[in-house]
Computed example of a mutant assay.
Amino acid sequence: MKRSSSSPLALVLLLGAFLGHALGAQEPSRPTPIQDNSFLLEEAYNQEAGVIQHIQTFSRLQRSGDWVYTFTEEWPWGGQRHQLSLTAPLQRLASSPDGGRRGMGDLALNYRYQALGDGSSVVAFAPRLSVLLPTGNHNQGRGNGNPGLQVNLPLSVVLGDQFVTHMNLGYTYTPHAKDLLGHQADIGTTNIGQSFVWLARQDVNLLLEFAYTSGEVVAGPGVRQPTQSAFISPGIRWAYTFPSGLQVVPGIAVPIGVGASRGEKAIFLYLSFEHPFTRGK
């Protein structure tokens, strides 16, 4: 049963790769550089004017079998300076009281401001503010039971012709968060990360990411319990670019737990479709 839970996105990845290869063989075109989000981190490049992106991710922990699938839509708002996006998670927690049934998590509504640079700059900075809506069932461990706010500060720096690094610093605050029993407490989580991307080819990237979180969970009425996680994640992504402007980017990574997460391993799958939605460029 655990194996079958990962098959939908795996099939989508394989289908995307097959279609990309087939279409590319029929009508070859020059690929454009890949500037998608890193897998565990954000890159500081907003969507270009007139271009929309659909992103799917799937991650599954080896030991627990817990998995989460996310779907994200990114839209430019009047140009590249402003970007709106929505992230919807579907997840399964093996330890939840419902026996590990899949269900919706908390929805994120995001706004990003391109404060510095863009995809062609040496340095780019695009702070994000998100509202987290309590659409998940906190009684089953799939949400916090109340709205929250999240701030993330992604900074991207080009290190040369073939290397780029991305740094993230963020904080999530949820007042009156609830545990499985409905006990409430204010909780916060800090996230820190850095990734290095090797532009092995114009349409192939090798990634090495580090992601660390230090936060709290509700452990009783007004009681907070500290929690931490840390992963190093090697990965690869590649692109198929078509004359229509469509770019398909599949990817795969293997997050490996270190520190507080030592001994844990995961599989991470990524699939992005980016295309124009106006008659612009």
Rank of each mutant, 00 (worst) to 15 (best):
P175M: 05
T189H: 01
G188Q: 07
Q202P: 04
S121M: 13
L155D: 10
I192R: 07
I187A: 07
P175G: 09
H176Y: 07
L149H: 02
Q140Y: 01
V158D: 05
G182R: 02
Q194R: 02
H138T: 09
G148P: 03
L155M: 10
I192T: 11
N144A: 12
V151K: 01
T165A: 10
L129C: 00
V197D: 07
D118H: 08
S120C: 08
Y171W: 04
G143E: 14
Q140R: 05
H166V: 12
T172I: 01
V131L: 15
L149C: 07
S121I: 08
T189E: 11
V123H: 02
W198Q: 06
Q202S: 04
N144D: 12
P134R: 02
D179H: 05
D118C: 10
P134T: 06
L159G: 02
L129M: 03
Q194W: 00
V157P: 09
S156M: 08
L132A: 11
D161L: 08
N144L: 12
G182I: 00
V123I: 14
L129E: 02
N144K: 03
P154C: 06
Y171E: 08
V123Y: 10
D161V: 03
G188W: 05
Y173V: 14
A200S: 14
V151P: 00
D186G: 06
N137T: 10
L153T: 11
A200Q: 14
N139W: 05
V131M: 15
T172K: 07
A126Q: 12
L149Q: 05
G182A: 06
V123F: 15
F125H: 07
V131D: 09
V122N: 08
N146V: 00
Q194F: 02
T172W: 02
N144P: 01
T172A: 11
N144H: 04
I187M: 12
Q140M: 06
S120Q: 14
